[in-house]
Design a protein around this nucleic acid. Structure first.
Lengths: 149, 149
DNA sequence: CCTTGACGGTTGCACTCGCAACTGGTTAGG
DNA sequence: CCTAACCAGTTGCGAGTGCAACCGTCAAGG
């Protein structure tokens, strides 16, 4: 076989599905004036209680540090995130949600989970488990799952 | 549960995996001086023998027409694709691979299939079937599978 | 100490992309 | 016919992104 069916080519399929999911979620972000990179910062900080360094967000989300830096700038401008330099390493910038940021997070999470549910609604429970399993295996084999502080 | 674990949030996971796959493939494209959108055009034209309209590529790949237009421009400049206006509808631009384009396609396909295989190598046969099944169901439920001429 | 290399974060720059406006061509309806 | 709405494809423009260079800080070794 010297031809390639684009529609069954996994990289293309993942790309297209990811794009579809992203644009669906954008509707929810937009309500709060933020976009994908800002959401990633918000989500990472929202997962924990204490502050986390910008670099931690970079490692967790596997997003380029310049993108994170600009997203953080945007979020502080919106008053959702606070920067404060670390005591033990003055290079690090520690980030944490402001009360308003925590509030936005709490409002946003159910919206996004509902959106995810809607997007996955075509899948049976078994299919979801199988998808989750396959994605996890891929993530591990590609080394995407290390997120230690 | 009022928190969201980003690492198990499907849109994020798809996005990250897709990005990982894309950058892996870029190494192969780059050898021929092309990038993702150019590859999509090449792949779509390569799947068939006769010429196809630019709009057909747009519908098949679900890529914005401006992106396709510029990709086609790039490919014609590289001598891999020929444009010719259609006889029965002079708005349409019919596209087809040049001999050189077909040659590049034939060289590129095995490289990309090998790369896909490498990326999926962590999955068992059953996992691959399950992944394929889940992706297909998602594609159908999102209406991504219509590609008629 | 001082130097050297590494690291966290920011920013200038070039590039790509999506949107919307536009061109030229087609179709339908009065 | 003629006009109006629509369609295929192109392009100008603004927004966002990745890269690389940069700044200030830290840690290791002489």
């Amino acid at each position: 076989m010297d031809r390639l069916n684009l529609l069954s080519f996994t990289p293309f399929r993942l790309n297209r599905l990811a794009a579809e999911f992203s644009t669906a979620l954008t509707a929810d972000y937009a309500r709060f004036g933020i976009d994908i990179p800002e959401w990633r910062v918000l989500a990472t900080l929202g997962m924990h209680d204490g502050p986390r360094s910008a670099n931690y967000v970079v490692r967790c989300t596997r997003t380029h540090k310049s993108r994170i830096s600009r997203a953080v700038g945007q979020l502080t401008e919106l008053g959702l995130v606070e920067r404060q330099e670390s005591d033990d390493d003055r290079r690090e910038i520690m980030l944490q949600l402001t009360p308003r940021g925590r509030e936005v997070y709490r409002e946003l999470v159910p919206l996004l989970l509902a959106r995810e549910e809607q997007l996955l609604s075509g899948l049976s429970a078994a299919q979801r488990r199988a998808l989750d399993d396959a994605l996890l295996t891929l993530e591990q084999s590609l080394g995407l799952m290390n997120c230690q502080p």
